[in-house]
Design a protein around this nucleic acid. Sequence first.
DNA 1: CCTACCTCTGTGGTCGGACCACAGGGTAGG
DNA 2: CCTACCCTGTGGTCCGACCACAGAGGTAGG
Lengths: 252, 252
Amino acid sequence: MKNYELVLHQVEADLAAGRLRIGGRLPGERVLAEQLGISRPSVREAVRVLEAMGVVRTATGSGPEAGAVIVAEPVSPLTAVLRLHLATNHLPMADVVQTRLLLESWSAREAAERDLGAGELKVAAELLDRMDDAGLSPEEFHLLDAEFHVALSGLAGNVLIAAVMASLRSAIHGYVLAAVPNLLDWEATAMGLRAEHRAILAAVRGGEAERAADLVTAHIRGFYQAAQLAPFGGEGGAAEADDDRRADDQVE
Amino acid sequence: MKNYELVLHQVEADLAAGRLRIGGRLPGERVLAEQLGISRPSVREAVRVLEAMGVVRTATGSGPEAGAVIVAEPVSPLTAVLRLHLATNHLPMADVVQTRLLLESWSAREAAERDLGAGELKVAAELLDRMDDAGLSPEEFHLLDAEFHVALSGLAGNVLIAAVMASLRSAIHGYVLAAVPNLLDWEATAMGLRAEHRAILAAVRGGEAERAADLVTAHIRGFYQAAQLAPFGGEGGAAEADDDRRADDQVE
DNA sequence: CCTACCTCTGTGGTCGGACCACAGGGTAGG
DNA sequence: CCTACCCTGTGGTCCGACCACAGAGGTAGG
């Protein structure tokens, strides 16, 4: 048992037992070290891991914002894990896109069935308005695009799926941007995406669950095909898997 | 920019550029420190994070197995993130179960459609045989159960979804075990689970995609209801089962 | 009395050096 | 040739120190 794991287990136990809560603070590194009978460097390694896991946020100085504050931020660690494993090329881009399809179509269907009010849809609607600005660069556009998709996933009410979706979008953002030059006509693409977004949101608002899911599926598939990213005949930079994914051909 | 982040970015860049590969080794901590102009403790914090992210595996001693070896182990970090955030109570168990339903029913459908050979199904089949042992404790049984479900997800051929599934199972394993006493009759439950597993595998083997997905959905729902782990709103399982299986299968 | 400044204190961030346990490989001895 | 030993390099741990930062509270000035 390595020493820093003592801290991890202690913190997890304290969280589970309610001794530590969101917004609370970890004891100081020096205090923690003495409590567990280990050295401060060992404590620091554990705190770094907790920080990477999105469980604490550290800050210098004094006051309520300083120190190691307990937070619950699952998106950034998931993003980091995905990014790193994408970098190793042992996580094919095709699998990421396939996962997006599954999660987003499910989310859209679920959101449509929940009969949401205008207030809950407002955030997504405003994002679409901001995306109408013709002066946006592809990068700015895609950041808003990602926000819209993440907001849409959030409407399904499952925080885990929403977090995974947000991570997927963040992790692939760089790859998506790099693929923009593959598009034949950026302006035309943007126009198409805007219209598709409106249609998706309208379907969700109207409670048309299956239509919303189908539109989302077509929307994502269409973009990845146009950008030649993956997995529909594109090369995408990921290792070329020889397997024929039957699901990819079914709906078209 | 904190110093240890230098190492993280360096490693990610080296991975993406192919300068670091799976099976390769990171430079020694002392070397890395000097290369980046930082101290060894800072390097160590970064290595700890990478280890927690499943990117490296550290070992003492010398030889090819010693040092920080590059690996690709996405399951353990995902598991850790889920466990920690479950501990904070900001990740409802119901959402985890819902995610399981989505991923596993999709995986079962996908696996059935791939027309797998006996060799690929062998691992799962052997797990089922081992689960027939009546002398297994609930803990041993559920470990095999988890392995079976993870193996099943793996048959769909999406490493990301398989990794997420494995993480979900690991993260909730403790909670599942704690709920065993809620079951009215453990032996009867185990018999039922065995039969359901056999039916699922048979459906996958026979290419009955929709049946496999439905069986998986009912299997998971049934267990969680019996164990009183995650309440499913008020709806009955049967009526809803039809809604959950319509991810990408319009054409069928 | 009020305000502005300024020190004081506690936080994480970083550093260099030291020692330990471990495991492999080269080497001296049988 | 084989065996046992030591040497070397690895991560694991610890210590003690100093820095930058930001709030708190005292203090001097208005």
